[in-house]
Computed example of a mutant assay.
Amino acid sequence: MAKSVELPNGRHWATRKAAREHFRDIFSRYDDGARISDPADHDDLSALLERYDLLIAEGPPKIGNGIAHFERRKTFDKGFPVRGFWVVRVDGTDTDFSYIDAINGTPKPQAQEFYHACRNAVSEDLRREKERQFDRFSDDDRMIACDATGALVGFTNANLSHAFPSFLTLVNEFRMLRGWIDAIPEGTLSASADKQISTTFVDPRDIAAFKAHHHSRAILRIVTSGKGGPVKDPTAIRSPIRLA
């Protein structure tokens, strides 16, 4: 059975082959040394890099402190040219990554479960904030301007998106603050059980700690589904949202 690919920005492909073709097309549209300039391409690569860090990356996350931009580069390995995507981070550091590995990677169970526990810790706050944004700023037709495109979008087709930093960056920061980069202590995450849909933190203090970290750092925006993703300059967002 073909395996589908779903990215954090809402993009979805029925097969890995279709996902690989999409990113191969992006790669082919740019010359060696060029910055990835199309906002949609940047958004998809940002989401793909989140998938890379979540599923297969070992050691420090490729996203690091946040994404500035992506480039297509030609480097040399043992005298032979190698072309690929590179991410340039907001602190000026950079690294390469394989879009094929990101698409083909299989989940690292503990990392993925920890990610879901963090998402569950703040999901209700995010849902309420999205509702507040529409209650305060939508027009008579219950439409609101997308902060990425300016186009009007309804509640169903809108996302409350992490503009800066990415949600995965916040998750990795929290692991680092807790001293859990190498391993997550046994008993931190809920064990598999009947009717358990998703992983949660066992200790309410861990839930409260992640919520506090998330709310102090996250800059959010309302975007049309599939049009979100990290941004380099949070001050450029027309309506940045902070959670109390």
Rank of each mutant, 00 (worst) to 15 (best):
H22Q: 15
L48Q: 05
E58V: 03
G59M: 05
R72Q: 02
D101L: 12
I103A: 09
D94L: 01
S98Y: 11
Q112H: 12
K108T: 11
R29I: 05
D31F: 11
F76E: 05
A40Y: 09
L54Q: 07
Y52Q: 01
F97Y: 10
K74T: 08
P39R: 12
G105D: 03
D91N: 14
L54P: 00
V90S: 10
D43F: 05
D32Y: 08
P61H: 02
A34S: 15
H69Y: 14
I36M: 08
V88I: 10
E50T: 09
L55K: 00
R35C: 11
A19C: 14
N104G: 02
S98V: 08
F80Q: 14
Q112P: 00
G92V: 00
T106K: 07
R24Y: 10
A40G: 07
A68D: 14
G79A: 08
L48V: 06
G84L: 10
R16G: 14
Q110F: 02
Q110P: 06
R72V: 13
P60M: 04
K108P: 00
F23D: 07
V87F: 04
I67F: 01
F76Y: 14
K74S: 01
A102R: 05
W86L: 07
D31A: 15
A102P: 06
G84C: 07
V90N: 08
I36G: 09
K17N: 13
A18T: 08
